[in-house]
């Protein structure tokens, strides 16, 4: 990427200010808009490298914008901004190719870290990747490209490097959900929790899918799989 172009779509002044201040020294081109409709218009009109997108927005909400990005095949790396301590809608967002999240309150170190990862992720290729964190990043790159089977394989390889990683199991669960395999998703979330009982994203994902209105066939299938263990 040459000069990095960032669009911040958020109506809260503390968020736009924190993001702008975090990247002020990097020489990035940063623009902001505080309304969903305007944000979508700008995403359609111009090419952006990174878009910070709040889930709650006046005009169109963040999830609907994400759906439009997916349907209009806009190539942008989206970072979703979620509420305090929340990882809501992560799987839904992933279906539309968004894999990076930051929760409020935003702080500069995390923001810079996530943007650095996104930028360096673009250069990864299956052949060059050997380490755990590279496989995770490769999986995220595939998710953005909606290549979910490839993402699944990359996560499996990450797990061979670090079999006790709650993060990798949680990501595996989410990919399985996107692929429609609820049983495998639930097992992956359980593994994540087994290795890290406090890992919030996996706890919330498991809570969400177990409280979903599963149809009875799914439920039976899930129970028989669990009982066979």
């Amino acid at each position: 990427m040459s000069q990095i172009k960032m669009l911040i779509i958020d109506d809260e002044i503390n968020i736009t200010k924190t993001i702008a201040a975090s990247f002020a020294k990097n020489g990035y081109f940063i623009q902001q808009c505080n309304d969903g409709n305007e944000g979508l218009k700008r995403l359609n009109e111009e090419k952006w490298d990174i878009a910070f997108l709040d889930i709650r927005l006046p005009g169109i909400d963040g999830m609907k914008i994400l759906k439009q990005i997916y349907e209009n095949q806009i190539s942008v790396n989206v970072i979703m901004i979620t509420a305090y301590g929340s990882v809501e809608n992560a799987v839904q967002a992933m279906k539309y190719g968004a894999v990076d999240f930051v929760s409020k309150p935003l702080e500069p170190a995390t923001l810079r870290n996530i943007v650095d990862k996104i930028i360096s992720r673009q250069h990864l290729s299956e052949q060059s990747v050997i380490e755990y964190h590279e496989f995770i990043e490769l999986a995220k790159l595939y998710i953005k490209q909606r290549e979910f089977h490839k993402a699944h394989d990359a996560i499996k390889k990450a797990l061979t490097q670090k079999p006790e990683s709650a993060e990798a199991y949680n990501l595996l669960g989410a990919i399985n959900e996107v692929l429609g395999d609820i049983v495998a998703a639930s097992q992956a979330y359980q593994m994540a929790i087994r290795f890290d009982a406090d890992y919030q994203p996996a706890l919330e994902n498991l809570k969400r899918i177990t409280s979903m209105e599963a149809n009875s066939a799914d439920l039976l299938d899930m129970m028989s799989t669990i009982l066979r263990k």
Binding site: K104, P105, E107, T110
Partner: peptide, 23 residues
């Protein structure tokens, strides 16, 4: 003021964690 506000009892660990105290 461009910071973040959290309404809650800081003596509860979830409130401090939501504030990202580890950062």
């Amino acid at each position: 003021f461009s910071g973040f506000t959290i309404g809650g009892d800081a003596a509860e660990s979830s409130v401090l964690q939501n504030a990202k105290i580890n950062k």
